[in-house]
């Protein structure tokens, strides 16, 4: 027994434990990313693979970045992506927060059942669920028909429509994204809300705060880390989402994931696709790093 613990205590072992995930990230994230960065600086050629670093000094080509930053197509795609992802994130937060809060307030046995229900959609294929939504939103579905009838009942005659155009719109993209990413918002929120001490709520109430004031002063500020974690878990993948906008989105205003995919496959412009991917990553990682920098500083002054 003593020997084993000695072995575990050796510094080398601790270094290895810490080192392994770093090695993993190095080999499977940083290295591929550097390859992508390199590719983005190459020149498109009709070869296989379809790029090269040939030609004149300085052997690299910044043309792709110039296009990303100047061509309105990419700018619009970025704006559409950030807009859709942002709206989806806010809606996930508005829907997810009460659900997560509710989870912390029910009995243990109910909590387990409800938590399972949150995760349950993952058990069926993601594609299947998107196709189900496509069916619901389609012009001839009962769902669309029901909404159309409701609309026609409520509005004046000359506003009446045959069906509500839901498919192939940003509305459809946001709806399906909210549906898909909601658990990623609920779970981190639940994790942070569950750790809060309910006695603090009582203390605030005891000091004269009504329940909504207790929420505003005590619960909400303490759940900020959960809100940020959930927000990032929803926003980042949603901004780069490919499948949902491809299936239900508006083809005339593509999201950025769609552009990357198109550049890689149909246009066979790998440097362009890589440049868009690099810019997307910088846009996503930049604010995250800023946030953790400021949080570290805030904690340092505590």
């Amino acid at each position: 027994m003593g020997r084993i613990s000695q072995w575990f205590d050796r510094r080398g072992f601790a270094a290895m434990l810490i080192g392994l995930p770093y090695l993993w990230l190095l080999a499977l994230f940083l290295l591929p990313f550097l390859i992508v960065v390199a590719m983005s600086l190459a020149t498109k050629t009709p070869t296989a693979p379809p790029f090269s670093f040939g030609g004149d000094h300085p052997w690299v080509n910044g043309q792709a970045y110039v296009r990303v930053l100047t061509d309105g197509l990419y700018l619009r795609a970025f704006l559409t992506s950030v807009g859709n992802a942002g709206v989806a994130m806010m809606l996930c937060l508005l829907l997810g927060y009460p659900m997560a809060l509710g989870l912390t307030r029910v009995s243990k046995s109910w909590r387990n059942i409800l938590l399972m229900l949150v995760i349950l959609p993952f058990w069926t294929s993601f594609l299947l669920r998107v196709y189900a939504w496509m069916g619901l939103m389609g012009k001839n579905s009962w769902f669309n028909g029901l909404l159309t009838d409701g609309w026609n009942l409520l509005v004046p005659m000359d506003w009446a429509v045959k069906s509500i155009p839901m498919m192939n719109s940003n509305f459809a993209v946001v709806l399906v994204m909210v549906y898909t990413y909601l658990p990623f918002m609920i779970l981190p929120l639940y994790a942070s809300l569950e750790r809060l001490d309910p006695v603090l709520d009582e203390a605030a109430m005891d000091l004269g705060s009504r329940p909504w004031q207790v929420f505003r002063d005590v619960t909400l500020p303490q759940s900020v880390p959960g809100i940020i974690a959930g927000g990032m878990l929803v926003f980042i993948p949603a901004a780069g989402e490919l499948v949902i906008p491809s299936l239900v989105g508006d083809a005339s205003s593509p999201m950025i994931g769609r552009l990357i995919s198109d550049e890689f496959s149909s246009a066979r412009d790998w440097p362009m696709a890589s440049a868009v991917a690099v810019v997307l990553l910088v846009l996503m990682v930049g604010p995250t790093m800023l946030y953790s920098h400021y949080q570290a500083r805030a904690e340092g002054t505590k």
Binding site: D197, V199, L200, E202, A203, A204, M205, D206, L207, G208, S209, R210, D217, V218, P221, Q222
Partner: peptide
Amino acid sequence: AWERPVHMMFQSYAIFPHMSVEKNIAY
């Protein structure tokens, strides 16, 4: 509870961890 002129010192003290000492007292 919020309308009673009765205040409590909790066993665990229940001090708001996200507020300074002064903010806690002023709450």
